[in-house]
Design a protein around this nucleic acid. Structure first.
Lengths: 196, 196
DNA sequence: TAGAAAATCTAACGACGTTAGAAACGAGGG
DNA sequence: CCCTCGTTTCTAACGTCGTTAGATTTTCTA
């Protein structure tokens, strides 16, 4: 039956419209406005519709988190064209911080303790993979033998995340945070290069 | 009137009992359980009592955040007896991460974007002051002229916070996070020492 | 075009933060 | 001792939240 495939298409379409609407609400009005009723209104339905497509609100939020990581990775890839590997890493980090500054509310739920750690890790995996590749290339081109590769990845990840967070946790602006992350990354890499 | 002073004492006492109860609930059952009704039950009162002592729930949470920073500073001071300044900084950072691991829910609200940035900064000020002093002593004893002192402070702060957060955001344990922050701090300081 | 199946809505539940107004309590003067 | 007055505390409610059951409307098939 052609109808059933069309039905499936429609179902998928409204599912994506819900995600899109949720993103719009989140980015424009923040976490507090991200309610099921508000999202449903945005797609011109009533609240229970959301539960036809997501087990609960958390499941929908997980989709937003995944979307956020995809978006951030896209931003990072922009910077990944820089030929010099060290500069490339710095630019990627800087681009992540810019992303955090441009999508503060999205970035917040991407790192909210409320979302399941495993789900977040799954969503972040491609970004983690990029980081691992960058560090791998960097260590090879600089003939650096890192004491522990995984440790190095976590340290870079934590540093970028921490400094990006200063943007909305403290009182520093986005351009300053970007400057800071660039400096921090340069310093850490310099430290590793000189065998600290 | 002696009665009025006793009344004031009682008022202050119940205020502190509310804070204490809120802390107990938060630490033992997490953010989701931290409701006004739950807290009131804990002190054997009904919900509206809370509003006699705090303008709203957020104001109470701010008190918890302040308490958290005091507690963390106490932990940090333990490590501040180490004579060698660089090792002292590493130990202080490590102690902060340990604190985050031992009080995960408290640490979470201490860095929740939901609490006012200004209030948090005020609560964190003593900790920030300690950090500034440490970096000041460090740079003098190592004859390092930092490109920008404030930048250096923010970088250290962000690094420690970021790596501490990996503890509950990702899937790494507390002892690993502590090891990571120690390495990260050593690396950054080494980078600054060699003028990166 | 009647009846089955799917999509969607209405109405409600319990829990949340919060507030207004009633009830209970304590102290001081007749 | 009782009665008033001010304070403390509670009861009851409002509006909003996430979520679900059941009715209702729409859509397709036979």
């Amino acid at each position: 039956m052609a109808t059933s495939t069309r039905r499936a298409r429609e179902r998928a379409s409204i599912r994506e419209r819900i995600i899109e609407a949720a993103l719009t609400v989140l980015e424009s009005e923040g976490t507090a406005a991200l309610t099921v009723r508000r999202i449903a209104t945005e797609v011109e339905y009533t609240a229970p519709i959301v539960y036809q497509h997501f087990a609960n609100k958390d499941a929908l939020v997980v989709e937003l988190v995944a979307h956020g990581y995809r978006l951030m990775l896209d931003s990072a890839r922009h910077a990944a064209e820089e030929p010099d590997i060290e500069l490339r890493m710095v630019k990627v980090g800087s681009e992540c911080v810019r992303f955090a500054g441009e999508h503060p509310h999205l970035y917040q739920i991407m790192n909210s303790p409320a979302v399941d750690a495993e789900e977040r890790t799954r969503a972040a995996q491609p970004a983690i993979d990029l980081l691992r590749e960058l560090i791998g290339v960097w260590s090879r081109t600089h003939d650096v033998v890192l004491a522990d590769f995984d440790d190095a990845c976590e340290i870079i990840w934590g540093t970028v995340y921490g400094i990006a967070s200063l943007g909305f946790l403290g009182t520093i602006g986005n351009e300053r945070a970007r400057h800071l992350v660039e400096q921090a990354l340069r310093t850490v890499l310099a430290g590793w290069r000189t065998g600290a």
